[in-house]
Design a protein around this nucleic acid. Structure first.
Lengths: 211, 211
DNA sequence: GTGTTATTGATAAAATATTATCGATAATTT
DNA sequence: AAATTATCGATAATATTTTATCAATAACAC
């Protein structure tokens, strides 16, 4: 298992491999081949093999990879066994959807608390996570050593929330508001612009051409 | 305005430029420079200029681009003036969040109807869109000439919904379930795997290195 | 008007990512 | 036991994307 630098597209493909392997039935095949995965996900076997070479302990000729090992290697690389705590701000529909999402654990995320400023939401529990008063955000984040902030508030409030989270000591922001947050260099920001993501789809559809 | 092929990363950057320009105040600057946009979005001016060269009618030396023109060019390229109708399947939290999202219009998407099989949801209206019985999906999609299907149902049901949508004549699928949908070649599929997207963030945070 | 400067857009160079080639190896077949 | 075949992994070739360089141009200053 070499430590090769991995490209962002490759990284995303790795998550797809893990997804595919995880949803294999319990008594599934003991081994999988790069070609098999490739066929399933409409990729080339060469690409799959190369991607896996960077994170797996390797396969055997004529047999392929041991399924269980490969899953373990992918989970390790993608972070399952190195979990980080996160706080979500904005318990609206999108926020609740994320709070209810069960798949994050596979990638090392645990949302431990939510914040909102709507009195009707404060005090409620969603999927086992308490919704706290947004006024307590900075303090609680610091006390709980939270590293990741998830922003699902309306655009107008996103920057303010972001600043508060940073004041609370978080290191990374996952931002669902379609605004460009200003942050210090050291903060890692990932923007999740649904509309932009969609734009790619409509464009591809019109061109009938993979962009 | 040349017709250059655009890379996927470039395409995503274009959406960010549009976002930034759109949120400029009403009486904002009449002109913008590539360097200005770049500084705002933490990119290089060279990259911004190159991206814009592919879709805009061009700027003037020493002045930059005319803001209004640039917005128009980006909107044109990204599809605003060529809207497609979409149907959303699965009116849970995520579905409702998308139904309530106002930003899609900028990129040429209009969600015209939602489907679900929960009797408590059927008949309701969310942000002006009716929630219909999932049993009517294929028929209605065809009658309404819907081109895009948005899948926000639990993973186990995603493939079935997808098949039904295709039977209903849709051309593109935006899939939020973390499964690999099997579709005919001609169908354009965009997977939106939240957990995978997140994995990138946590990894970057740990490495403190842009992946 | 002439010189200076900010800015674009084209072209070239460098970096990155994908795809192809091929030798090595271990299971299977003969 | 030898030949065959499926498969991996390394290396090389190609393609793509980003970054740098630089000439052209139009506004501005003098």
């Amino acid at each position: 298992m070499k430590e090769t630098p991995i490209s962002l597209p490759a990284y995303n493909r790795l998550t797809r491999y893990l997804n595919y392997l995880q949803q294999l039935p319990e008594g599934g095949p003991l081994n999988v081949s790069a070609a098999g995965i490739a066929a399933e996900l409409a990729l080339s076997d060469i690409q799959v093999r190369k991607d896996l070479a960077a994170v797996s302990r390797g396969g055997r000729p004529r047999v392929g990879y041991v399924t269980r090992e490969l899953v373990a290697d992918l989970e390790h690389f993608l972070g399952r066994d190195n979990s980080s705590d996160a706080a979500l701000v904005g318990a609206g529909h999108l926020g609740q959807a994320l709070l209810s999402y069960e798949n994050f654990a596979s990638y090392g995320l645990k949302i431990v608390v939510a914040f909102d400023n709507d009195p009707r939401l404060i005090g409620r529990t969603i999927n086992g996570k308490a919704v706290m008063d947004a006024a307590k955000m900075a303090n609680l984040c610091r006390r709980l050593s939270i590293r990741i902030g998830i922003i699902t508030v309306p655009s107008a409030f996103a920057q303010g929330v972001c600043d508060t989270l940073i004041a609370g000591g978080i290191l990374a922001v996952w931002n669902f508001a379609p605004v460009n947050l200003k942050t210090p260099e050291r903060i890692v920001v990932k923007n999740e612009d649904m509309a932009a993501s969609l734009a790619v789809l409509t464009k591809r559809m019109r061109l009938d051409q993979p962009l």
